[in-house]
Design a protein around this nucleic acid. Structure first.
Length: 612
RNA sequence: GCCCCAGUAGCUCAAAGGACAGAGCAGCGGCCUUCUAAGCCGUCGGUUGCAGGUUCGAGUCCUGCCUGGGGCGCCA
């Protein structure tokens, strides 16, 4: 929000440098000035000093020369309009602006833009984000949560940064896991229907049961293989059952997405990609890009060989099994093509997929490039690290995890949550989260009506969960523990929501109408200055989060803003301010803070309650 | 063997190559008859894994190591 002032300052500096034959550094970067009850920005002059020393062969230490330049420039810049003071400190040129005028401007801007504050102009560019990608006929558990929460937040952030976002889902609706489930259902639960509630739990129980039966009775496996043959032959009765049971899964997922406040614009099915995928493989073989080793081996794309690379880089991409059945790899090619057929104008096609598949993603992208698709360089793998379960949960998991053959003794202390693990199902998680949050709401604010407490408890619980998963680098592990996932204090969503509630409370007490815009006349308190700085920083945080696909920048901005507000709240009377102008300005500042907090939380998919 | 990620306070994590590396949690000590104490203040805490290098300036970039995790032709 200081753009125009910074531009003026830079212009003046450039003129000075030119006049004194000092080469201009490649890039100027403003830094925040250490806050001392004033407001402004700093500019390190080391790059210019270093350039000058080098160009002129001076024998002066760079820091000393930087300080001299800063001092000279301070005089040049001090007289510019809007600037109240400029000084040289240890090689930095610190420029201070009129805090009253800027304080008003920031507050007015936030209030005028309201829900649009922090949002960039539309770019007229479309991006697709594929995320969630659950398997039907399986559980939806805490391990899947990070993907959904990250994907949704990235979508919201990209939208705020001006992109038109297409949210895509890709359902794993076929494969051995589905056949196993159908076998168990047909053999032991014929005709049964899932309960209206908890469809996903019921389905996942049948899946776990199928694994247990096969583990205990390996002699039953031929039955499953026989069923797979029926599937391959597209037995109409089996296909009908598959469609019906798949729909149960989808309805269960939709319920989860509704709870999480997530939606999709386009859903692709893995089963739809099988036939086009096999056709593509034949095409690859004809064009000499793939090598057919059947029946002894699979069909492969020897990427390093095709690219003439000596060092193993892309390695070999296996696109079809030796028996001619399809792999994930078979289906991901037509999926990518289908996306660009439907949306040819995508400037980015993003895959939110865990980091273990990085090599695989690179193989897909490179193969598509070799096939000649010009959009191949617009594909992007947004990698994130897995959710780990602590050792005590892992043991529970193992009791229901019949596919895991890893020896128990050399297992790491925490284990990645995977789709066949039954522990920490989402309904368990939500239930426990709600319970803990409700207990705290009851304790903190027993005066609220029970229905409101219920609603607040859910907002708090879900907020804490989402925030915890988003407030870290995407590429860092998230180790799930109840206490950490549902921490309500400190750097967590509830304390940010609480700051929002405090704002709402002040505004309610003030009568609900906001005073007209006003320029403050009192000496702005350092806490006020800091709070205004946090507000002004919001739009940049959004742009950066979008550019880097990192919701972390939003959580940092939100928590910093909440902290600054709490500090302000503690030190600066609002309703009881010393004079009417101060009261009016601070009320507007509170309203602006409330708006900015709500906007930031919204980008994270977290609700901002009015009371709690 | 090749590649990717991580290593920062007791713990969980921040930190556009910039000023004295910051928060939260845990610990200790304060602050509720005054706008909601899910808060605020103070205090305790550091050789940023190791060694070199680039730079005016390195937690950040480069090289080599160490430790942990992950990936590497028919799993998803």
């Amino acid at each position: 929000m200081l753009d125009d002032v910074q531009r003026q300052v830079l212009e003046r500096i450039r003129a000075y440098l030119t006049a004194h034959a000092i080469p201009e550094p490649r890039e100027w970067r403003f830094v925040p000035v250490p806050a001392e009850g004033t407001w402004g920005f700093g500019l390190p002059l080391f790059p210019a000093a270093a350039a000058e020393v080098r160009a002129k062969g001076l024998r002066v230490p760079v820091p000393q020369r930087a300080q001299e330049l800063a001092a000279a420039l301070a005089d040049e810049v001090a007289a510019l309009p809007g600037i109240v003071r400029a000084e040289a400190v240890r090689g930095y040129l610190n420029v201070y602006v009129d805090a009253h005028a800027y304080g008003r401007r920031v507050v007015d801007t936030v209030l005028e833009q309201a829900a649009a504050f922090g949002r960039a102009p539309r770019r007229g560019q479309r991006v697709m984000v594929e995320f969630s990608q659950p398997n039907t006929h399986k559980a939806f558990h805490v391990g899947h949560l990070r993907n959904v929460i990250l994907g949704e937040a990235v979508c919201r952030i990209l939208d705020a940064a001006g992109y038109d976002v297409v949210r895509a889902n890709y359902l794993g609706d076929i494969g051995w896991h589905v056949i196993k489930w159908l076998w168990n259902y047909l053999t032991y639960h014929p005709g049964e229907e899932p309960p209206a509630e908890d469809k996903t739990v019921w389905i996942s129980q049948l899946y776990i049961e199928a694994n247990q039966r096969l583990k205990a009775h390996p002699e039953l496996e031929p039955q499953v293989r026989a069923l797979f043959q029926r599937w391959e032959a597209q037995d109409p009765e089996l296909v009908a059952l598959w469609q019906k049971t798949r729909q149960w899964s989808i309805e269960g997922f939709e319920e989860i997405y509704r709870l999480l406040d997530v939606h999709f614009d386009r859903v692709y099915f893995e089963s739809e990609m099988e036939a086009p995928g096999k056709a593509l493989v034949e095409d690859l073989i004809r064009r000499g890009l793939a090598r057919d080793l059947r029946p002894e081996g699979p069909v492969i794309v020897p990427l390093d060989e095709l690219l003439g690379l000596d060092k193993p880089t892309y390695r070999t991409y296996v696109v079809l099994r030796s028996d001619g059945t399809s792999l994930y790899a078979t289906k991901d090619l037509p999926l990518a093509i289908q996306k660009f057929r439907e949306y040819p104008d995508l400037v980015r096609s993003i895959y939110v997929i865990d980091v273990r598949q990085s090599l695989y993603m690179k193989q897909i992208f490179k193969t598509l490039a070799l096939m000649g698709f010009e959009w191949a360089d617009r594909l992007y793998h947004l990698a994130y690290e897995l959710v780990l379960l602590p050792a005590n949960l892992v043991r529970e998991v193992d009791e229901v995890d019949m596919e895991d053959t890893a020896p128990a003794d050399d297992r790491p202390k925490a284990k990645a949550a995977s789709s066949r693990e039954g522990a920490v199902l989402l309904d368990q998680l939500f239930h426990e989260a709600r319970r803990r949050a409700r207990a705290i709401v009851d304790e903190k604010n027993p005066a609220l009506p029970p229905a409101v407490r219920d609603q607040v408890a859910w907002q708090v619980a879900l907020g804490a969960l989402k925030y915890n998963m988003l407030a870290r680098e995407n590429t860092r592990f998230f180790t799930f523990t109840w206490d950490q996932a549902l921490d309500f204090n400190g750097n967590a969503a509830p304390s940010i929501q609480y700051a929002h509630v405090r704002c709402a409370s002040l505004l309610r007490k003030a009568g609900g109408t906001l005073p007209d815009a006003v320029t403050p006349t009192h000496n702005l308190h350092p806490a006020e200055i800091a709070l205004i700085s946090r507000l002004a920083a919001v739009p940049d945080a959004v742009l950066r989060a979008a550019a880097e696909y990192k919701p972390l920048h939003i959580t940092n901005a939100a928590f910093g803003l909440a902290q600054a507000f709490n500090d302000f709240y503690d030190r600066c009377p609002v309703l009881n301010a010393a004079d009417a102008t101060t009261r009016a300005f601070r009320l507007r500042l509170v309203a602006a803070t409330k708006q900015a907090l709500a906007n930031l939380l919204h980008l994270l998919g977290i609700e901002a309650p009015e009371v709690m």
